[in-house]
Computed example of a mutant assay.
Amino acid sequence: MRFLPLAVFVVAAAAIGGTMLYRTGQQEEGVQTAATPDRIAQGKAVYADHCAACHGVNLEGQPNWRSRKPDGRLPAPPHDPSGHTWHHPDEMLFVMTKFGPQATAGPGYQSDMPAFEGVLSDQEIIDVLNYIKSTWPDEIREEQARRTEVSRRNSS
Rank of each mutant, 00 (worst) to 15 (best):
residue 54 C to Q: 14
residue 123 Q to C: 08
residue 46 V to L: 13
residue 45 A to V: 03
residue 21 L to K: 09
residue 70 P to N: 09
residue 108 G to D: 09
residue 23 R to S: 05
residue 143 E to K: 07
residue 107 P to C: 00
residue 47 Y to V: 00
residue 142 E to T: 10
residue 47 Y to W: 10
residue 59 L to I: 06
residue 126 I to M: 11
residue 110 Q to V: 06
residue 84 H to Y: 09
residue 22 Y to C: 01
residue 28 E to L: 00
residue 39 R to G: 01
residue 56 G to D: 07
residue 102 Q to H: 08
residue 10 V to R: 08
residue 60 E to G: 01
residue 72 G to T: 07
residue 108 G to Y: 01
residue 9 F to E: 10
residue 129 L to N: 12
residue 23 R to Y: 14
residue 3 F to E: 15
residue 43 G to H: 05
residue 51 C to F: 03
residue 60 E to M: 04
residue 150 V to T: 08
residue 8 V to Y: 14
residue 96 M to N: 13
residue 84 H to F: 07
residue 102 Q to N: 13
residue 2 R to Q: 13
residue 28 E to W: 00
residue 145 A to T: 14
residue 18 G to I: 00
residue 50 H to I: 06
residue 105 A to P: 02
residue 135 T to C: 07
residue 77 P to K: 01
residue 85 T to L: 11
residue 128 V to N: 13
residue 40 I to M: 13
residue 54 C to T: 14
residue 78 P to D: 07
residue 106 G to D: 12
residue 24 T to G: 07
residue 20 M to R: 14
residue 6 L to H: 09
residue 19 T to W: 06
residue 65 W to G: 09
residue 115 A to K: 08
residue 29 E to W: 00
residue 9 F to W: 10
residue 153 R to T: 04
residue 47 Y to P: 01
residue 34 A to L: 10
residue 1 M to A: 06
residue 47 Y to D: 03
residue 54 C to V: 12
residue 111 S to P: 05
residue 145 A to G: 13
residue 43 G to P: 01
residue 134 S to N: 11
residue 147 R to D: 12
residue 70 P to Y: 05
residue 98 K to L: 03
residue 36 T to P: 12
residue 75 P to C: 04
residue 59 L to K: 01
residue 27 Q to T: 06
residue 132 I to T: 07
residue 127 D to G: 07
residue 131 Y to I: 02
residue 18 G to A: 04
residue 134 S to F: 06
residue 67 S to E: 15
residue 104 T to P: 05
residue 19 T to G: 10
residue 27 Q to I: 01
residue 100 G to F: 02
residue 87 H to D: 13
residue 54 C to K: 12
residue 105 A to T: 03
residue 92 M to I: 09
residue 153 R to N: 07
residue 105 A to Y: 05
